[in-house]
Simulated assay, not measured.
Amino acid sequence: MNTYTAQATHIDDRVPLRAPLLFAVVALLGFGLIYSLAGTALGRVAFPWQATGSLIERDGHAVGSQLIAQPFADEAYIQPRPSAANYDPMAAAGSNMARTNPDLRKRIAEVTAVVAEREGIALAQVPAELATQSGGGLDPHLSPRAAQVQAARVARVRGLDSAQVEQLIVANTEAPQFGLLGEPRVNVLKLNLALDAAR
């Protein structure tokens, strides 16, 4: 009687490892590999352009993404918003400075002065977005107004009529999403490509 009880207790105390280990392997392969591969494959089939980065091509070569800002050094181009990440997608971030931070105020004042001089406009006419960084530092859009204040410079450098540049800005202005969400906006890369095509 005592021997039987001891054996039964010994058997009950053993922890079966086969089932949890099998579940761990299945979960790892299922959720870590198969689910990821299936999601990627479905995305490429359903949304092939978006799944590969929403890349914009010119002459068969990718020149950038519709979703990520990039710098334009030449004065012949519409300039994007400043970037706290230096336009690096791997370092996307804002400055995290409070509006009361003296360093932020100083930087905004300096950038505003640079933009005003570059565009030949008064300090008060500089749109705030041309002197401030977006939250992620990679906003590819400007408001139509921020693009318009750059039209005269771009027209002068390119030898175009200002009205032609302004028409291209209007033609490349996107409406709010679904007609409700957000504000009208201009994708800087698309507009600059349109300017190149207008030469």
Rank of each mutant, 00 (worst) to 15 (best):
L191W: 00
E129D: 05
R118G: 06
L168R: 05
R145D: 04
F72D: 03
S95P: 07
R156T: 04
T100W: 15
A198Q: 01
G53N: 07
L180T: 11
M97V: 09
S134N: 03
R156D: 02
A62L: 09
S95K: 12
V25L: 08
R185A: 08
R199Y: 00
A152M: 09
Q167S: 02
L104G: 02
G30Y: 05
K190P: 10
D161P: 06
A91F: 15
E174M: 04
H10V: 11
S134G: 02
V25N: 00
M1G: 08
D88C: 00
A147F: 05
L17W: 09
D103V: 12
G137N: 04
Q148G: 08
H61G: 14
A24F: 15
S36A: 10
T3V: 10
W49H: 15
D88M: 06
A171P: 03
I169K: 00
D103T: 13
P144Y: 03
A163E: 06
P184T: 03
A175R: 11
L191F: 01
L142R: 01
A198V: 03
V170A: 11
R58L: 05
R199D: 10
P80T: 08
T3C: 03
L191G: 07
R145C: 05
V114P: 07
L189K: 04
P71E: 10
E183C: 07
A38F: 06
G182S: 02
G137Q: 02
A85N: 15
G39H: 08
I68Q: 04
Y77P: 08
P16A: 04
H61N: 12
N172Q: 02
G43L: 10
A198N: 03
L55E: 13
G60Q: 05
F72K: 02
I78V: 09
S83Q: 09
A41S: 13
V63A: 06
R185I: 05
E110I: 03
I68K: 03
G64Q: 06
R145G: 12
A147W: 08
R99D: 15
P16V: 04
Y87I: 07
A6I: 00
A198W: 11
A124I: 07
A98T: 14
R58D: 09
R158L: 05
A152F: 05
R118P: 07
L42G: 07
L168I: 06
S143T: 05
A69F: 15
A198G: 03
R185N: 05
V115F: 07
E110A: 05
Y35G: 00
Q7I: 15
V111Y: 13
V165S: 02
T112K: 12
A93I: 12
L189S: 03
A84Q: 02
S36K: 10
R107Y: 14
I121D: 14
N192Y: 14
D12L: 15
L130A: 01
D196R: 02
I169H: 01
L130P: 01
M90L: 14
Q177T: 15
S83R: 09
N187P: 00
G60S: 06
L55H: 12
Y4P: 12
V45E: 14
I34F: 01
I11Y: 12
Q79L: 03
K106M: 11
R107C: 04
E75P: 15
L104E: 03
G136P: 08
Q79K: 09
P89A: 09
A69H: 13
G179A: 04
